[in-house]
């Protein structure tokens, strides 16, 4: 790193920037545009790793590591856990429901971005000092000197904030069980009393050919029964409707068996004759 003020960085860093910046933007766009929350989370994780690399390139060695450990490691995993808990919902749809929201968002975003870029471009930021001198005694030691001297109160207060947040999260998610859990007997009695579907749900799959979980069972008239498929798959729209195919198969089978039987009828007398 340069000790004196400079206006350009090394070519290696430039190459690294242009390659990884594209990756970061693609990751960010994917976070916004991906339909599934899991995909968004993974894209965001990718962007954050890229940012970690940028931190390292900018001389923030401690922050780069923390970015990977805390953000990508802890926070993103937390996100994934919650995605798992909540599951797939209709909220994942990208179809807009508020009239004009998409246009307003686009206009605001465009205006905001242009103004921000214009602001940065407007600032006279030709030269930079580099962190050579600041990092001379080690980046972590430099940060520690600042955090524990000048920013010690802020540091303590953020500590308190973290504790509070942890307690708050526990309070929010904790559910006191106020009543005894219903037994299986009570649940079945309740179902019967309400006149809901009493019998066991039908199993998925049609005939022996299709026993995959995502294929609904067919009712006697050939229509598919949604009850036979797991709710998660239904919500995700991953139910494979094979009713048409199955009916076609059935027709073909009947035809074949008819043909076979006809031939057999022809042959049976022979057999009797034999």
């Amino acid at each position: 790193m340069n000790l004196a003020a400079a206006s350009t960085t090394s070519t290696g860093e430039a190459v690294q920037f242009w390659v990884l910046a594209v990756v970061a933007v693609i990751g960010a766009l994917a976070t916004v545009l991906m339909k599934r929350a899991v995909h968004s989370a993974l894209s965001l994780a990718g962007t954050m790793i890229v940012l970690a690399v940028f931190y390292l390139a900018n001389g923030a060695y401690f922050l780069g590591i923390v970015q990977i450990v805390v953000y990508t490691g802890a926070i993103m995993m937390l996100f994934l856990f919650v995605v798992m808990l909540v599951g797939v919902t209709a909220a994942d749809s990208l179809r807009e429901t508020i009239r004009g929201q998409r246009w307003l968002a686009a206009a605001c975003g465009l205006g905001f971005g242009i103004l921000l870029v214009a602001g940065v471009a407007n600032a006279s930021l030709r030269h930079f000092d580099g962190l050579g001198r600041a990092n001379a005694g080690g980046n972590v030691e430099g940060l520690a000197a600042l955090v524990f001297t000048r920013y010690v109160y802020a540091f303590e207060i953020t500590g308190a904030l973290l504790i509070t947040a942890a307690v708050g999260a526990m309070v929010l998610t904790h559910r006191e069980r106020t009543a005894r859990a219903a037994t299986q007997r009570e649940l079945s009695q309740e179902r019967t009393r309400k006149g809901a579907y009493v019998a066991p749900l039908p199993a998925p799959g049609t005939y022996a050919r299709h026993n995959a979980n995502d294929i609904p069972a067919l009712l006697p008239d050939g229509t598919p029964s949604d009850l036979s498929v797991s709710k998660v798959l239904r919500d995700r729209g991953q139910v494979r409707d094979v009713s048409r195919e199955a009916l076609a198969d059935l027709a073909a089978l009947e035809q074949r068996s008819a043909e076979w039987l006809e031939r057999g009828r022809d042959e049976e007398p022979k057999g009797v004759a034999q």
Binding site: A37, A41, S93, A105, A106
Partner: peptide, 15 residues
Amino acid sequence: TIGGVGVLLRRNAIV
């Protein structure tokens, strides 16, 4: 900006 637009566009609270 991309993040901000995302906040405006997405309905899933997690996203």
